[in-house]
Design a protein around this nucleic acid. Structure first.
Length: 347
DNA sequence: AAAGCGGGGAA
DNA sequence: TTCCCAGCTTT
């Protein structure tokens, strides 16, 4: 069974795998390493120009190690996840100092380099040295979860461990490079996250998810973490066609951006906020509620439009500014404030 | 607009 | 050990 899986993949790869990519055909571990790092969170088409430019400027470990971090980052600029570039640079310097600028062949030593985890170390070992090592990146997790109907969320340790065991078991005795490339290619082009093309899949006949027509159920998605909910009332003080904004503290949410004064929504707090600035409130008008989702919580915003009748002359205003809506739209304001301002024109 | 991604570093 | 984040893509 396991042998069939690998054999079919290898056979499939000849005709349907991705060929001719700039990093294929090279066994230079440096080139293989660079491509694997660039491909970690980035798709092939974006990587290609960066890979060629980077390799042109830093053709080997010694050159990379000798370069400044600034220049390395400049060549990475636009790819994102800049810690990858910093780790790449650090690794090159480690190799220059400790391994005579040679890329280590030993799996444990490769794994020990910064920015290289178990799967990346295995991919480099397989492609550069022909070592028989299992990989398990996001694509492979999806292929195996479906092929073997592995339940649970792969981000969970228990599930990931099970997938690693399967990955090891399915390894072929020979042809590790083609097999590894085929597995990656299958996940990227056939066994895709949505709408997998099972009709074109070389292992669909004994794929558990396909047999049960449950492709969409594997791998199980990350459990939805219930976001904490927070609520605030934004006070939109308005006077003579201008609105009042104050600058937020430099750190924290919307640090340094301009926003409306806030209150907890009680009448006392609203009055207090107005008094803080010396505003004498006229009519109040609740605006439509809205919400804004952050990475770690959901914020419910109740906007309250307050027409300011009079500003007490002694009032200090160095913490805030009065701007026309148009001026405010051009200022450094967070997205929800922008939406609120945009909605002010309409009733 | 939301979820995914491989490894590092914090908790 | 386990949890969370980065910064861009794809759906």
């Amino acid at each position: 069974m396991a042998a069939d899986f690998a054999r079919r993949l290898i056979r499939w790869h000849r005709q349907h795998g991705r060929h001719g990519l700039p990093w294929q055909g090279s066994r230079d571990p440096y080139a293989v390493w660079l491509s694997e790092i660039m491909l970690q969170q980035t798709q092939v088409s974006s990587v290609i120009p960066y890979y060629q430019r980077f390799l042109g400027r830093f053709p080997d470990i010694a050159t990379l190690a000798a370069a400044s971090q600034d220049e390395v980052l400049a060549y990475w600029s636009g790819l994102g996840y800049y810690s990858r570039a910093r780790n790449l640079h650090r690794s090159a310097q480690i190799m220059a100092e400790q391994h005579a600028a040679e890329f280590p062949r030993e799996f444990e030593q490769i794994l020990g380099l910064p920015g290289i985890g178990r799967s990346t170390a295995a991919a480099i070992s397989a492609f550069a040295f022909g070592s028989r090592r299992a990989i398990l990146d996001g694509n492979v997790k999806r292929v195996l979860a479906r092929y073997l109907a592995v339940a649970g969320y792969p981000g969970e340790k228990k599930v990931e461990d099970e997938l690693w065991r399967h990955a090891e078991t399915l390894l072929p005795e020979a042809g590790i490079e083609t097999y590894t490339q085929a597995l990656m290619d299958l996940g990227a082009t056939v066994c895709t996250r949505s709408k997998p093309d099972c009709a074109s899949c070389p292992v669909s006949a004994d794929c558990a998810a396909n047999q049960q027509v449950r492709q969409a159920e594997f791998p199980q998605p990350r459990p939805r973490k219930a976001l904490p909910e927070k609520a605030t009332t934004m006070l939109l003080f308005m006077r003579q066609g201008e609105i009042f904004l104050e600058r937020r503290p430099p750190a924290g949410i919307w640090g340094g951006l301009w926003s409306f004064p806030e209150s907890d929504g009680t009448e006392d707090a609203q009055q207090h906020a107005g008094m803080r600035f010396g505003f004498e409130a006229g009519s109040l008008e609740a605006r439509p509620a809205m919400q804004h989702v952050f990475t770690h919580f959901r914020l419910h915003i109740s906007p309250l439009l307050i027409h300011v009748r009079r500003i007490q002359p002694r009032a200090r205003q160095q913490e805030g500014v009065w701007l026309t809506v148009e001026e405010a739209m051009g200022a450094a304001i967070p997205a929800p404030v922008r939406r609120l301002l945009a909605g002010l024109g309409k009733p």
